[in-house]
Structure formats: C-alpha cells, structure tokens
Amino acid sequence: MHSKQDKKLKLLWFQGVTCNGNTHSFLNLPNIEQLLENFEILYHPILPSIYSLEEILKLEENCDLFLFEGTYDPLMQHNGVELSKIVDYYTKHATHVISVGTCASFGGMFKATAPERNSGLIFNEEESFGPLLEQKQKVINLSGCPVHPEWLSYTLSMIVSDKEVEVDELHRPIELYSNLAHHGCTRNEYFEWKVDVDNFGEKEGCLFYKQGCRAPMTHASCNKILWNEVSSKTRVGTPCFGCTEPDFPRTDMFSTKTNMSIPQDTPLGVPKRSYLTLTGIAKTFHIKRLEGKLIDYKTTR
C-alpha cells in the first residue's frame, strides 16, 4: 500500500531570465502552507527544496509539474548547463507545465534582453513559438507581471484534484482570464459616464482617457481577485498596464494613445463606431455628482 507521502506530486520550479517577481508574488498566498502539502518540492528558487540547484542540473530526477518562471533564452546557462537542455529534459516527463508570469508565457519584459531569440515557452508575444510547441497541450500560461498568487494556487489545486483546466487560445485558464481587469474596477461609473481626470492622486475619474489605462482591453481578474487580498492598480489610481497580455510591456504606458483625441484602442470587442456614439452622448451630460469630489475633507489647518 502506498503511504500518503507517495501520492504527492513532484513539483519543480525553475527559472529562465527573471526578476524573481513571480516567486515573491506566490509567497503572498495566504494558504501557501496547505497548498504546498500536496507537493514534494524538488526545487524552488527560495523555498526549502529536496535537491540543490547543482543536483537538479544533473538532470537525473523527474518531476510531475514543471513550473517555469522568466523568459526562455535557449542559450542561458545554469552552472554550464544550457537552459534548452534543462527545459527539454524536465518537460518530457512532466504531465503539466505551467508558465508562471508573462515572461514565461509570452516573452514579456525580458524578451528585450535578447529579442532575436528570447520568447515564452509556446508563444513569442502572440505568435506560436518556443521550445514546447510539440507538447503545447501540457502547457498552461499564467500571464501577469507578476502572476497573481491565487491564479497559481487555483491552477495547482485543479491539477492536484485531477480536474481539467480549460484554457483560451493563448493557453490561459478561462476561469481566470475571461474577465477583463476593468471588471470590478471601483472607477466603473466614471467609465460609464465618460468622466475623465486630468491629474493622478484622485479617487474620482476614469484613467482610460488620458492616463493610459488598459483595463478594458486586458484579460485579467485583478479587480475581482484583489492583489494581496487588498487592492489593485486601478483602485489606487494607477493605470492598468495590460501586463497579462502578449504585448506587455508597451510604450508610453502612462498616457492613452489617441488619434485626433480619439482613443486608438476601444474596449475589447466594442466597435469604434459604437464606442464613439456612446461616448459622444455620454460626455454631453454633465453630472454634478460625478464631476465633483466624492469626499471633501475639511482641512484642519
């Protein structure tokens, strides 16, 4: 008879070109202890692991789950072993491969380190490309810069309970990425009535018109499953930079790209004509409540 110990899935977390942001984001997970009880951690960049990096690089052990963080650079070496060999070896035996973060999913921030060869595991931005094309059915992309700990926890839990994770065309779990970052934003009413804002540092106003907010075009559940269980970028007045999408990082991220004052990109799936019709009309209504301050603190000084 097998003991409970034997049933644990063997998890290997390996890094390509990275900042460690996903590693640290994952450590924020409230139920990390319970979740990790399901796994035998062969290697993790921070957490105690069964093997040292040196041992892992001998390519002798097998894992069930291969978690990859960072951009894939085939020529990168860890202690003299090429990353292409490492990825090739461990993914061959793994039943599941998870690209943790946007770098591993689409190339992300560190595609720029060596743009001619760096990519994600099965995508180079939106184009099908990378070392695991032949076994792409194994790959789940958890884009996000960084990944949200709950998104990774969801995916790992589904795998542990042997449930299938349905994914979109970019291999992202639909339960996590069918939402837009816009959903649940506390500034939604300002978007509905097209009330923009000139300055940062205000509770009022939508950041889509001037500050470059990508939330209406970005697949992510940031305003549904809050960050650190507390907040989100848009809730604290920072525009969404679209970090879960293949084109992250874009340029001029703090301003909205407009053509003759008209936003170049309209909310996902909304034709420009419909959007402009609605906007033109909504903008003509000057709604006092939405144009004023939500709270006017009396200055005590």
Binding site: N259, M260, Q264, R273
Partner: peptide, 13 residues
C-alpha cells in the same frame, strides 16, 4: 460627429 471622428482617427492611424 461619430463618423467625422472615425474619419479623423482612421486618417491618423
């Protein structure tokens, strides 16, 4: 107005 907006923004794009 909407069509004029479309005309201008297409032209810039």
């Amino acid at each position: 107005i909407t069509e004029m907006m479309i005309f201008f923004s297409d032209g810039v794009e």
